[in-house]
Amino acid sequence: MNLTVNGKPSTVDGAESLNVTELLSALKVAQAEYVTVELNGEVLEREAFDATTVKDGDAVEFLY
């Protein structure tokens, strides 16, 4: 899956889609429990991480 992460191209191997929690784990995001996630310009509530799917071509920003 090809994404733009914090403005840079990134690839997650072996996945066509992941939820936000899985993406944080796959990318080994440090202190993931404290990060705010913006997906395609929309800031996500932490409670929505498990239910929100990240797909090929999406833009993700991790805000600390």
Rank of each mutant, 00 (worst) to 15 (best):
E33R: 04
D58A: 04
V20N: 01
A26Q: 08
S10I: 15
N6I: 02
A30T: 12
F62R: 00
N6D: 06
L44V: 15
E42Y: 11
G7N: 05
L63Q: 12
G41I: 04
N6K: 00
F62G: 02
N40D: 02
T11A: 08
T53I: 15
K55D: 03
L3V: 09
V12D: 03
V54Y: 01
L27T: 01
Y64F: 10
E22R: 06
D56M: 05
L24E: 03
V43P: 09
V12I: 14
Q31F: 15
L27Y: 06
G57F: 03
A48V: 10
G14V: 10
S25V: 15
V5W: 03
V60N: 01
G7F: 04
F49E: 00
K55F: 10
V20R: 00
G14A: 09
K55Q: 09
V29N: 03
E61W: 15
T21C: 10
V20I: 13
D13Y: 15
S10Q: 15
E16R: 07
A59D: 09
V54I: 10
D58R: 00
Q31G: 14
D56L: 04
E33W: 11
D58I: 01
V12R: 01
T53P: 08
V37E: 00
A32Y: 10
V60F: 09
D50I: 06
G57C: 05
R46K: 08
L24C: 04
K55V: 10
D13K: 14
A48S: 11
G41W: 03
A26T: 09
E33H: 10
L63R: 13
G41K: 04
R46Q: 07
A59V: 15
L63G: 13
L3A: 04
T52V: 10
V29S: 03
F62M: 06
K8F: 10
T36Y: 09
L24R: 00
T11H: 15
N6L: 01
A48R: 11
N40Y: 02
L27F: 07
E61D: 11
V5K: 00
E33S: 10
F49P: 01
Y64R: 05
Q31W: 15
V5A: 04
A48C: 11
V37L: 06
P9I: 07
E22V: 05
V54C: 04
A59Q: 13
G14L: 08
K8E: 09
N19L: 07
V60Q: 00
M1R: 00
T53S: 09
P9L: 09
A51H: 14
F49A: 02
E47P: 07
E33V: 08
L3G: 00
E61R: 15
V60Y: 05
R46M: 06
V12F: 10
V29Q: 04
L39Y: 04
E61G: 07
E38N: 14
D58W: 02
V60T: 02
L3W: 01
Y64S: 09
E42V: 15
N6H: 04
K55A: 07
D58G: 00
N2W: 11
L18Y: 07
V37T: 01
A59G: 05
E42P: 00
Q31A: 12
R46S: 06
K8N: 09
E42R: 11
F62H: 03
R46G: 05
D50Y: 07
F49R: 00
F62V: 12
E16T: 15
L39M: 04
G7C: 06
P9G: 05
E22N: 08
T21W: 14
S17M: 11
T52N: 03
S10V: 15
K55L: 07
V20Q: 00
D13N: 13
N2Y: 10
A59Y: 13
V12A: 03
Y34L: 13
V29T: 05
T11E: 07
N6C: 11
L18A: 03
V37R: 00
V37H: 00
D13P: 14
A32F: 10
D56V: 04
A30P: 14
A32C: 12
L23G: 01
E33G: 09
E38D: 05
L44G: 02
T52Q: 06
V20W: 03
V37G: 02
A26D: 03
L23I: 05
L63F: 14
G14M: 09
F62S: 03
L39P: 00
V29A: 04
P9R: 06
G41N: 05
A26W: 14
E42N: 12
Q31D: 14
V29C: 10
G41Y: 03
L63W: 15
T21N: 11
E45K: 11
V54A: 01
D50S: 10
V20Y: 02
V5Y: 01
L39Q: 01
E42F: 11
S25T: 12
Y64K: 05
L23R: 00
S25W: 10
E16S: 14
F62C: 05
A51Q: 13
T21R: 07
A26P: 00
Q31R: 08
K28I: 06
T4G: 04
L63I: 14
E33K: 06
N2V: 12
A59H: 14
L18P: 03
D13G: 11
A30C: 14
G7V: 01
K8Y: 11
D58F: 02
T52Y: 06
A30Y: 12
L63H: 15
V60R: 00
E33M: 09
F49Q: 02
K28P: 05
S17H: 10
V5R: 00
T52R: 05
S25R: 10
L27W: 04
Q31Y: 14
T53N: 11
V43T: 10
E38H: 15
L23V: 04
K55W: 07
Q31E: 12
